[in-house]
Each structure stands twice: as C-alpha cells, then as structure tokens.
C-alpha cells in the first residue's frame, strides 16, 4: 500500500512541481540566450562602442538580472513549499481528508508517503536550481573570458585546490568534514523542512477553531524555537572552543560546529514532529 500511496502522491504533486521546474528552465534558457547574444557581447566590447555608458548600464542590468533570476528561483522554491503545505492541509484535514483517512492504510504510511514525496520534490528543486544557477554563472564567465565552459570549470577546480591547499597548510585541517556536513545538509534538509512544515500543520489540529491559521502560527513558533535552540548550542560550542587552545583552524571548527548544530536541530525537530504527527493522525484525529 505504501507504494501506491507514493505513486498517487507523486502524481498529484507532479503537475505543479513540473510546471515550476519548466518555468525555471525556460528563464534559465532565456538567460543563456542573452549571454551568448550579440547584445551581451556588445556590452563586453566598450572600445567599439560610441557610448562609454553602455558597459556600465550593461553591468547594472546584468546585476539586476542576476538578482531577479536568483529571486525568482528562491520564490519558486518557497512557493512550491507553500503549495506542498497547502496540499497537505487540504488532503489531510479538510474535506479531502475524508477520503485520505478512510483508505485501508496505516496513518504512519500516509505520513511517510507525504513527507518523502515532498522531500524528494524539494530536493529535486534544490538540485535543479543549483545546476541552473551554476550553468548560467559558468556560461557568463566563459562568455566574458571568451573561453569554453570546460576551461572555466578546470580553472575553478585549480583555484579551489590551491585554496584548500592553503587552508591545510595554515590550519593543518582538511575541509573534508565541512564538505561532508554540507552534503548531508543538502540532502537531509529538504526532508527535515517538509516534516517540520507538515508537523506544524498537524499541530494546528489541536485548536478548536481556525486550525489552518494555528498551523501557520505553530510553524513560525517552531522555526523560532529552532533558531533559539541552535543559537544556544552554537554559543555553548563556541565558548567551549574559545576556552581551549586557539589555533589557526578555529574559524573552520566554528563553521563546522554551526553546520552540525543546524543539521542536528533540524533533524531532531523533524523526527519529533513526525512521530507527533503519527500520534495525532492515529489517535487524535478529529475532522470537522
């Protein structure tokens, strides 16, 4: 039954998720067309232009374009998360919940299907948008320098190797732990975020009235609480580091600590809210 729940959950979210990805891809393609167009190249060649203001205007437009592009991607991502939250509320706690909760499946299976599907979609969005931004930036650099994207990638790789070499030389530390931590955050955070969002909406069910609104308030409250807990943990770890021997690698250690506490708090809250949601749906469900 869990497989069927996954199938239908993906089907129902794919229209909006797919549409948002297509919009992002279309805007990225338009950006790429602009970067390889004579318009962009004209701005790169001020000597040939009669008006010296053109490169400045071009730089401003380029900056604004990049800002709008990033804003649009963030907006799409946040918009999709709001859509997932709205869909979760509708399918679980509004009239549609009458069908969801009379299916011959376990409450935990319903929630697993929803959290995993939502998490996978958010991960797909994050990966796709990261790739799109990276592609546009690489293309932009390549066009400015008049070289291929491959050359730019090789150049970035060489620069990073030199950078990591310096870090290792001066601090004696490798960046492997930071890399692993960032990678873990990249893959775990979408699932944790969805679990926290759905958990907050489920907490709203404790209210007698305005359950949807209470879910939103619960979400904001949980996020605030998470920030406070992360802040306290970070402070504790920073004080701990500072009271010990301070060496050149301390800033890296502090950054690693921050990644760790952020991830730990996210996972902790996500797990607690997920278990709590199962309890609410299984033992305390009260649809209006």
């Amino acid at each position: 039954m869990l497989g069927k729940l996954f199938k239908h959950e993906f089907q129902r979210t794919s229209k909006v998720g797919g549409l948002l990805l297509i919009i992002a891809a279309c805007v990225t393609i338009l950006g790429a067309i602009y970067l390889v167009s004579p318009l962009f190249h004209g701005m790169l060649a001020p000597d040939d232009m009669r008006n010296p203001m053109i490169p400045i205007v071009g730089a401003i437009l380029g900056f604004l374009g990049l800002l709008s592009y990033s804003g649009m991607l963030i907006g799409l991502s946040v918009g999709f998360m709001i859509y997932l939250g709205f869909r979760f509320y509708k399918s679980m706690y509004s009239d549609e919940g009458y069908l969801t909760h009379t299916l011959p499946v376990k409450s935990s299976d319903i929630l697993i299907a929803k959290v995993v599907t939502g998490g996978v979609w958010m991960l797909i969005m994050t990966i796709a948008m990261t790739l799109m931004v990276a592609f546009l930036m690489l293309l932009g650099f390549a066009e400015v320098r008049g070289v291929s994207i491959g050359t730019i990638i090789t150049s970035i790789k060489d620069t990073l190797e030199i950078f990591f070499g310096y870090i290792k030389e001066f601090t004696g530390m490798k960046l492997t732990s930071s890399g692993i931590m960032l990678l873990l955050m990249f893959f775990i955070t979408p699932f944790a975020n969805i679990s926290i969002l759905y958990g907050a909406i489920t907490l709203g069910q404790y209210s007698w009235k305005n359950k949807g609104l209470m879910g939103i308030i619960a979400y904001l409250g949980i996020r605030m609480l998470m920030s406070i807990v992360s802040g306290i943990l970070n402070l504790g770890m920073t004080v701990g580091r500072m009271s010990g021997e301070i060496d050149a690698g301390i800033s890296l250690s502090l950054a690693n600590d921050k990644y760790f506490t952020t991830l730990l708090v996210s996972v902790l809250f996500a797990v607690i809210l997920f278990v709590w949601s199962i309890h609410v749906v299984r033992d305390r469900l009260n649809l209006e």
Partner: peptide, 18 residues
C-alpha cells in the same frame, strides 16, 4: 483501523474528491 476501513464503504455528507 486499516483492516476495518478495507471492509467499510463510506459516503460522507460532503464532496471529498479533489
């Protein structure tokens, strides 16, 4: 629970379809 839901066919007093 899930076992009884497989054996009960329920028509609620509202539209529950998307």
């Amino acid at each position: 629970g899930p076992e009884t839901k497989a054996r009960i066919s329920y028509l609620p007093d509202r539209t529950y379809l998307t």
